[in-house]
């Protein structure tokens, strides 16, 4: 049994509860338990690209410092902080590399953290749960723990930007990734390829320029459908929200009838590994995935 210091991020506590609960359940089954770190703060979701803005680097540094202390009380825990949200992952990874390599940035940030009795020792690595599954758990073990293979599920693995960009944060090859495909395959699902696997969904433009997100989502979903997918699997709560809610609003406008349900990769794992269905919180989804799952006799 290995325990990991787990940083949830705000969304896994609000509208992506199914993502978190399913991940915690399968992590226990796979002996790679995610244990929530105490007293965490929002990472900022996007890392600043301005070299002179240290303020926006404080939050991720505090998380790294607190997680480093958390690791001490865990069982067999490596010096790693694990995330589920790909935006958190990217932000923490980029800032971690940035301050590790640049003492002139870390020093003033540590000075700020001093009053909170925190000091980052440059001793942590940031890992996405997908990396843990691939590198530490292994697909073989996952395959063995599958109780209900996802037969009939034709999934399009949508990476979005933050799992593959920028270089400091990528968890796989940025032009030909395989981690989501390999995982879905070991769960017994059929893989559908679409060239728009990392075509940006429009991200935070949803707040003030919804039309951009709308166009992007249309393209992404259409391409997935043309290639024969009946579901989309993602690792980012913002991608999930955009793909999910925009499809629903297109349906309301009469533009689209056939909607693709959106799954977090951990939800697929939970279904295949026989966890109780209610931990997936499908009621949070705009497009109810239960219809498809029932049709395929998976729940």
């Amino acid at each position: 049994m290995v325990q990991y210091s787990y940083f949830p991020g705000c969304n896994l506590k609000t509208n992506a509860k199914g993502f978190e609960k399913s991940a915690l359940a399968v992590s226990k089954q796979l002996d790679a338990e995610l244990v929530e770190m105490p007293n965490w703060n929002c990472c900022g979701t996007v890392h600043t690209l301005a070299s002179d803005n240290l303020m926006k680097r404080i939050a991720p540094t505090r998380i790294l410092s607190r997680s480093s202390k958390h690791v001490e009380i865990l069982e067999n825990s490596p010096k790693e902080v694990v995330t589920l949200c790909s935006m958190c992952n990217s932000t923490l990874k980029v800032v971690n590399k940035d301050i590790k390599n640049d003492e002139s940035k870390l020093e003033p940030i540590n000075f700020q953290l001093e009053v909170d009795e925190e000091e980052y020792q440059k001793d942590m690595e940031v890992k996405h749960f997908l990396e843990i599954l691939r590198d530490s758990v292994g697909y073989e073990k996952i395959e063995k723990s599958v109780k209900k293979p996802l037969k009939g599920l034709k999934v399009f693995c949508y990476y979005g930007c933050m799992l593959l960009h920028p270089d400091e944060a990528k968890i796989d090859d940025e032009e030909m990734p395989a981690v989501l495909e390999d995982l879905s395959e070991s769960l017994g699902a059929e893989i559908i390829f679409s060239p728009l696997f990392k075509h940006c969904c429009g991200s935070y433009h949803i707040v003030d320029q919804e039309d951009i997100v709308n166009t992007q989502v249309q393209k992404i979903i259409q391409s997935a459908k043309q290639n024969g997918a009946n579901a989309v699997v993602v690792a980012c709560p913002l991608c999930a929200y955009n793909l999910d809610a925009q499809q629903k609003s297109m349906e309301k406008q009469g533009l689209d009838k056939e909607l693709l349900p959106i799954f977090y990769f951990t939800q697929l794992m939970a279904i295949a590994m026989g966890e109780a269905s209610n931990i997936n919180h499908f009621e949070e989804h705009h497009i109810n995935p239960e219809k498809l799952l029932k049709k395929l006799k998976l729940i």
């Binding site: 703060n41 929002c42 900022g44 303020m55 404080i58 939050a59 505090r62």
Partner: peptide
């Protein structure tokens, strides 16, 4: 918009 700078707690 919170930056988690902790100025408030201080």
């Amino acid at each position: 918009r919170c930056l988690s700078c902790n100025a408030c707690s201080k």
